[in-house]
Simulated scan of single mutants.
Amino acid sequence: MLLVIVVATALLLATIIVHGFAVLLLYRIGMTPLMNAEGMSPLRRLHWSYFFVIGFVIAHLIEIMIWALAYWFTGELKDMEEATYFSAITFATIGYGDVTLEGRWRLASAMEGVNGILLFGWTTAFLFKVSAMLWFPRKPPGEAAGVDTD
């Protein structure tokens, strides 16, 4: 059981690191447009929204594959297709139950579910902030509508 906890913790930390790099990369690429969103057309804002969403989908797919590789390498699941499917439904906390792990490795799948909840929450928080910056940019106090600065 200790080996499973150690391996699952390492996988959890690896996916957190992947997600952190995704956040940094997406923000670095999108920082200038986010800071200048006020002058953008709605279509351009939508394109930047797509950029962030697709970026996080890719990050989540990488994170799911990290867990899937572990299930496959340990021999818990027979092939990579089954391991990927199981990892995806576990990470997303869907848990259909048509594919399950045997014995001690079940604890790892529980940790993957917790991992998925945390990383989806992080993604949601980031996308919420990005959406606010893109769609509701703040004007400097002197430029607010109806405010006389004289």
Rank of each mutant, 00 (worst) to 15 (best):
A125V: 13
T90H: 00
A145M: 11
L3P: 09
G55L: 01
E82S: 15
F91T: 00
A83N: 02
A144Y: 05
F21R: 09
P42S: 12
F126Q: 11
L11G: 00
Y27M: 04
R44S: 12
L77S: 02
I62L: 10
F136R: 15
I16M: 14
H47Y: 09
G75E: 10
G55Y: 00
D79G: 01
D98Q: 08
D150W: 10
I54W: 05
V6R: 11
E82K: 14
M133C: 11
F51Q: 04
M35D: 12
T9H: 03
F51C: 04
L13W: 03
A144V: 11
F86Y: 11
T9F: 10
S41P: 04
A125L: 13
A37K: 06
F136K: 15
E81M: 11
E76T: 07
E38V: 10
R45T: 09
E82P: 02
L13D: 02
E76D: 13
L77Q: 04
Y71I: 01
Y71N: 03
W135R: 06
E112Q: 15
T32S: 13
W67A: 03
G142Q: 14
W48K: 02
M133L: 15
L61P: 01
A125E: 05
L77E: 01
G30D: 07
S109Y: 01
V130P: 02
